[in-house]
Nucleic acid binder design. Structure first.
Lengths: 219, 219
DNA sequence: TGTACATCAGTGAACGCGCGTTCACTGATGTAC
DNA sequence: TGTACATCAGTGAACGCGCGTTCACTGATGTAC
């Protein structure tokens, strides 16, 4: 409605879409500085609103950060999905299943490299001291589209006969760990200063190991 | 020399081993709260010394945190080494090489689970704004004992004929990514609430994938 | 169509907090003669 | 062995900072009659 609020100073007293505007500003901050950059006062400042106004829409700073996390996770899922959809649909079913799996891994890492701050925020740990119960003790990522996509890709590998059904359980964890670990090491970790070439080699090698490790078949 | 300083209030004006005492207190803080818990003023407080005194031994807060990082990395290497050394020395060379490799992975994760705060600190990113040059742009972990150990274990796999020399390059990255990723997901990440049983399965499955993926041989 | 009024969505000042770091200082230690 | 003095390793007060959050408030909006 009043999307220009970020640049044009708001004229009306009521904003109209403040919650969204705040979330977007917060995502921008996360993008450029990671979770620590999501500062409530700065978010309000950027939107051109008093800090107090934020409390009409978020009960607490952590609440806002949670929203940013969700958006980050969603963006990651999008990157994954896009990469998978770019794989042509024709050819040998086995080769296609493997190609989609590899594409997903590449999409995961591509998102991390394109949006390191948001990636870190998506996986940052927030202490909800106030939490009443175990209701939230589910795996948040397990509910995410990205995780569901991973499960489907692995199911496909079983269907085409490349992944032994007996080895299907736990396959998510192994695959996810390898790709996520690579992302973390490359983005913030000790592999931060690898050249683009070295990164590419690392990625290829890691995906190879996972694919062979899961299917038992080298390409 | 004056190791009791932590409990007994210091009597002499000069401490005698303040740098060490500060570092140890800082490590304790990291252990229980991760990198953010390494607060210079709190460190000084614990040692029973004014905050200013720390500046005789560390030029800056980041300098202190760097020291903690090193200690964390060293502790990780120790956990790895211990696990590898616990593997019996007799038997088929191939089986032994694989067993040692698996043990190292288990040691890596065991350290992460036993000392999550210190583990996180060991891998936390510190911005050295003041850095003059590219001197520090080496991979800090690559200089660590843990990374060297990983290299040796992989070399062993080549020597016993289980790892194709053509596949040796990049093997560190693939193996390290998988285990590190699992650690990160389990400690802070979305897999935080997995039961001990589920964790064990995830670990076994991940190591299996890496071993098979590298060697091409399922056990 | 007009008016009273409840409710909603903002404001601005203030609080308390704890941090890293600097400053001018002082007490303790070691060395040269 | 004694003394003068440079150096070292501490102290304590203070600064500036920016944060999350609360408070009493006011302007805008919508609804009942």
């Amino acid at each position: 409605v009043r999307a220009a609020a970020k640049t044009t100073p708001r004229t009306t007293y009521h904003h109209g879409d403040l919650r969204n505007a705040l979330t977007e500003a917060a995502v921008d901050l996360a993008r450029s500085g990671g979770p620590d950059a999501v500062v409530l006062r700065e978010v309000a400042r950027r939107v051109g609103v008093s800090a107090t106004a934020a409390y009409r829409h978020f009960s607490t700073h952590d609440d806002l950060l949670d929203e940013v996390k969700s958006r980050g996770l969603a963006a990651l899922a999008e990157s994954l999905t896009e990469a998978v959809l770019r794989v042509p649909a024709e050819g040998d079913p086995g080769e296609l299943a493997v190609a989609r799996f590899r594409a997903a891994a590449q999409g995961y890492l591509a998102f991390g490299e394109a949006q390191p701050g948001l990636f870190n925020t998506a996986f940052c740990h927030i202490d909800h001291e106030d939490d009443d119960s175990d209701d939230h003790q589910t795996i948040p990522f397990a509910d995410s589209d990205a995780y569901r996509m991973l499960g489907m890709l692995l199911d496909d590998l079983v269907e085409v006969g490349l992944l032994d059904p007996a080895r299907r359980p736990g396959a998510e964890i192994a695959a996810w760990s390898a790709v996520h670990g690579l992302a973390v090491l490359l983005l913030d970790g000790p592999l931060r200063h690898l050249s683009a070439e070295e990164r590419a080699v690392g990625l290829e090698r890691t995906i190879d190991v996972v694919v062979i490790g899961l299917t038992g078949i080298s390409r």
